[in-house]
């Protein structure tokens, strides 16, 4: 029964992710004064990619890269509470496990793209990993403020404590939530932190050598990653409520990120990391300070 429930969740989240992608493309098209593709366009893209023939691969690791990426993101689905439904595998300290699991996917893609022996791919990965030095720390600091306050490291318990609307963590931990939102922008690779896949500079970065079915797998990974990352933020700061409210909240957070994505150019990688270590770091530290004073 658990297996069936998990497959349901997996397919549902993938469809949700692709739906978010389609609506985001329509939304940014509207900002750019045009109509944009049908909302189900991402589904078509994935089907087309999976249907491609004689995809070219550079070796075993190149082929396994997207598979590991997909594994990593499916794994993190196990630990993510969707609204008020308890996740399949929830135990104490699973926020730390989740943080480390969220790293498996980029690492898998990085190993695969490394095998492609293309400098564009490796520069993209070096930028991605350096950016991780920026946003992972900020997200962790903003999450740790909540964890220390409720003295728990279980995502599920934090969701339970928050309950319905007025008791969200957003209001008591406003500073940490704000820093978390900036970190989320980098985690999802939206502009101004869109350095990993900058087409003009490094010809779509790590994806430069991926074609056909591998690219389809990466698109699926990206779709689930959107839901998982926004879901993580929603659970920590906007928790509680039924699955429907969870979907609405993740949708709203993602749309906020996409809107910012449309009005900002890209950082240079040096500027992006320095930006993260300047303002968001101070904001998250203030957030922690607030927790100490307030406790």
């Amino acid at each position: 029964m658990v297996i069936l429930e998990f497959f349901l969740v997996l397919i549902g989240i993938t469809a949700l992710g692709l739906l978010y992608g389609g609506i985001a493309r329509k939304w940014s098209a509207r900002i750019q004064r045009r109509y944009g593709p049908p909302f189900y366009q991402n589904f078509l893209d994935v089907f087309k990619l999976l249907g491609k023939k004689n995809t070219k691969s550079h070796g075993v690791m190149f082929a396994l890269g997207p598979v590991i990426a997909f594994t990593g993101i499916i794994l993190s689905l196990f630990f993510l509470p969707l609204g008020n439904s308890r996740p399949l595998l929830s135990f104490e300290g699973d926020i730390f496990v989740l943080f480390y699991l969220l790293v498996i996917a980029p690492l898998g893609m990085a190993l695969g793209a490394g095998e492609a022996a293309n400098p564009n791919a490796t520069i993209g990965i070096a930028r991605g990993l350096t950016l991780m030095l920026g946003y992972e720390l900020i997200f962790f600091l903003s999450a740790i403020a909540v964890m220390v306050k409720f003295n728990t490291a279980s995502l599920w318990k934090i969701v339970e404590i928050q309950g319905t609307f007025p008791k969200w963590n957003l209001f008591p931990f406003f500073l940490s939530a704000f820093a978390g939102l900036i970190a989320l922008q980098g985690m999802m690779g939206e502009k101004p932190f869109d350095l990993i896949v900058a087409p003009h500079e490094i010809a779509s970065g790590p994806m430069v050598e991926y074609n056909g079915k591998y690219l389809g797998l990466l698109q699926l990974y990206h779709a689930i990653a959107i839901v998982v990352e926004t879901g993580l933020f929603v659970n920590v700061f906007l928790g509680g409520g039924s699955i429907l409210t969870f979907i609405l909240k993740t949708f709203f957070v993602f749309m906020l990120a996409v809107t910012i994505d449309n009005i900002m150019p890209r950082f240079r990688i040096g500027q992006a990391v320095k930006f993260y270590w300047k303002y968001p770091l101070i904001i998250s530290l203030l957030g922690i300070l607030v927790v100490f004073i307030w406790r």
């Binding site: 491609k52 995809t55 082929a63 598979v67 594994t71 079915k213």
Partner: peptide, 23 residues
């Protein structure tokens, strides 16, 4: 999770190894 991902990978068409210069 690895098995699921590998199944998705294996179901679709076979890929062909390509020389290093085909970049």
């Amino acid at each position: 999770a690895f098995v699921i991902a590998f199944l998705v990978h294996a179901v679709f068409s076979r890929s062909r190894k390509v020389s290093e210069l085909n970049n």
